[in-house]
Structures are given as structure tokens and as C-alpha cells.
């Protein structure tokens, strides 16, 4: 007797991947960098990550509920934790808890759900969250811990700093290399003089180790085909294209391209932030140009803007032009001329 079967369109086998898998791979790739950061800056970072994740998931659940969307598939897609971790990585480890709360509310409610949720955000949610708190709470966000050995806070002090409102400013006051560079170049000192400062040198070296750890995770993401090579290459090209002429013109007053590539959040941004697919360009050449724009704007903001690191602003500005890039840089279709 003939048997009846359920119909369905090709391809018939299930897809080999899922949004959850992609996001999980991004989180895994962040681990080496997180580990190095914890070694340099203390376990406070883990606390910030946990705080951001909790607030992100709470905001996500609340918005899904309000918008009448199913909770399970969207809470388990791990996109909110990825935004939370990327946001937390930008925070000083002992930032008060409400920084994470405000940042994540901005990221998940404002940048993500008010635009339509997963897949619809025009701007990178993590960077929107970061920029909101950076502009609103500049003082709290510039308090990076001293890197000298033995300066780590005891757990009690740390919890007090995060939850109790007591910021041990003196114990922590230490500028990042980018802060130092910016401040001292402003005071008319040359790069060579700044470099010879002991704090700067050790911080810069640690920054390079950190960059290496991000690079490691990023290369794994490339190998896993989670991200496209055009974005990190574009960022590097953009950074070099702006930094190299300045540096060649006057190496006493402008940092080298290599310094720009290895300091601050350049590598993190190149592999993990500018590669956020929803708000980035979708065409291959669009991605290259998107990355280049991020790199170039970042150096310009560092050098001439009001903030020591410009990655977040650069990413958001390029988010705004990404659709235009895609429109211009259409790839050639098989069997058609340009």
C-alpha cells in the first residue's frame, strides 16, 4: 500500500549551525582576552561581566514580554550576553554597578529592541551602551586601576567599590597609555619622553599582550567562519592609512601605526566589535570599507577628538553609513558584466 509523507522544501537536512552556536563561538573566542585582562586588571572584570549579563538578560526578557515575542528562542540565542561581555570589557573593573545597569538598558532597550530586536538593530548595541555611559559618567569610566603589582583591591574593598558607592580613587588612579599619550602630547612633550616614563612602558607592554590575546580569539573566529576577513583587515588598513602619514610627517608628535594597532581596543574592535554583522556592511567590499572607516576614524578621534579612544564612536559612525556602502558596492553577479 502506498504511504503518504510530509512535504518540505529543499534543502532537506537541518542547517549545521544556529545563532546560538555563532554567539557561543564569539563568547569562547573572547576567553583568552578575558583571561589576560583578569590577570592585568583583577577579577573585577568578571564581576562587571556578570553584572552586565544579568542586566542584559533582564532587559531582554522585559522587552520581549512587552513586545509579545516568545522568550525562549530569543533569550537562549546568546546575543544579549555577547553584547554584555563586549560592553563590560570597556568598563574599568571597579565601576559602580549602576554603570552596567544603565549601559545595558541603553544597549538592549534603546539600541536593540526599539529598533525591532535581534537582527534589526541599526547601531551596535554594546557600543551604544558604552557611549551612553561614557558621555554621562566620564569620571567613573576613566578610573582604571593602577597596574603596579600589589595594587589590586581586596575582595571586600572591591565589592564596596562596586556596590557600596565608595570609589577608592587614589588607589586606582592610573591613566591608560592612550590617556597618558593624549594628556602629555597636549602638554608639548615628545613621544620619546612619554615612552620613557616607567608606567607608560609597562602598561603599553601589557596592552600588547592583551592585543595578542584578542588576536588569538579573532583568528579562531576567522577559521570558524564566524567573521569575515574583510573587517579586521579593513580596520588595520584604516589605522595604518591615517597613522602612518602622520607618524612619517612627525614621529615626535604622532604615535606609530603599530602603537595604534596594539593599544586600546583596536584589536578587540577589529575582530569582535566592528564584525557585529547586523549593524555592519553585508557586501564583501562594503565590509572592507566599513573596517577601514572604523580604523581611520578611530585614529582621528584619538588624535584630534575629545576622547582618548575612539573605537566606539568610530563604529557607531560607520554603522550609520553601512547601508549606503552596501548599496554602492554590490558584487558582480555570476554570468553578468559589472
Amino acid at each position: 500500500m502506498a504511504r503518504e509523507f510530509r512535504l518540505g522544501g529543499a534543502p532537506h537536512l537541518p542547517a549545521a549551525t544556529s545563532v546560538q552556536t555563532v554567539m557561543l563561538k564569539v563568547l569562547l573566542a573572547l576567553l583568552p582576552g578575558i583571561a589576560v585582562s583578569v590577570i592585568w586588571f583583577g577579577v573585577g572584570l568578571l564581576l562587571q561581566i556578570a553584572l552586565a549579563c544579568v542586566f542584559a538578560l533582564l532587559a531582554e526578557a522585559a522587552m520581549l514580554q512587552l513586545r509579545g515575542r516568545p522568550l525562549r528562542p530569543f533569550l537562549s540565542d546568546l546575543s544579549a550576553p555577547v553584547a554584555a561581555v563586549l560592553f563590560a570589557l570597556c568598563l574599568p573593573p571597579w565601576a559602580p554597578w549602576w554603570i552596567a545597569a544603565i549601559g545595558m538598558l541603553s544597549a538592549i532597550v534603546l539600541a536593540k529592541h526599539l529598533y525591532g530586536g535581534l537582527g534589526y538593530n541599526v547601531f551596535n548595541p554594546a557600543m551604544v551602551g558604552y557611549v551612553v555611559v561614557l558621555i554621562a559618567f566620564t569620571r567613573e569610566l576613566s578610573a582604571w586601576p593602577a597596574l603596579a603589582a600589589g595594587s589590586a583591591l581586596a575582595p571586600g574593598e572591591m565589592l564596596h567599590a562596586v556596590f557600596g558607592g565608595g570609589q577608592p580613587w587614589d588607589a586606582m588612579a592610573q591613566a591608560t597609555p592612550l590617556d597618558t599619550l593624549r594628556e602629555q602630547l597636549g602638554q608639548g612633550r615628545t613621544l620619546a619622553e612619554i615612552r620613557s616614563g616607567p608606567a607608560f612602558a609597562s602598561a603599553a607592554v601589557r596592552g600588547e599582550w592583551l592585543a595578542l590575546a584578542w588576536l588569538l580569539g579573532g583568528l579562531w573566529l576567522l577559521q570558524q567562519r564566524v567573521i569575515h576577513w574583510q573587517v579586521p583587515v579593513g580596520v588595520a588598513v584604516g589605522v595604518i592609512a591615517v597613522a602612518a602619514p602622520l607618524w612619517l610627517y612627525d614621529s615626535g608628535r604622532h604615535a606609530s601605526p603599530l602603537f595604534h594597532l596594539t593599544s586600546g581596543a583596536t584589536v578587540l574592535a577589529a575582530f569582535f566589535i566592528a564584525t557585529e554583522p547586523v549593524s555592519g556592511a553585508a557586501t564583501p567590499r562594503g565590509r572592507l570599507l566599513f573596517g577601514a572607516g572604523v580604523g581611520a576614524l578611530c585614529v582621528l578621534i584619538r588624535r584630534y577628538g575629545a576622547y582618548p579612544d575612539g573605537i566606539a564612536f568610530a563604529v557607531l559612525l560607520m554603522n550609520a553609513v553601512a547601508p549606503l556602502l552596501d548599496r554602492w558596492l554590490h558584487p558582480r553577479v555570476f554570468g553578468r558584466s559589472k
Partner: peptide, 15 residues
Amino acid sequence: QLRDPAPELPCIRCG
């Protein structure tokens, strides 16, 4: 071996 009947998620433009 068949596709999960669960609803699809929105496109994340991964490319």
C-alpha cells in the same frame, strides 16, 4: 534528519 519545526529567528546578516 529533518529540519527543526521550531520557528526561524530573524536574519542576523552574518553573510
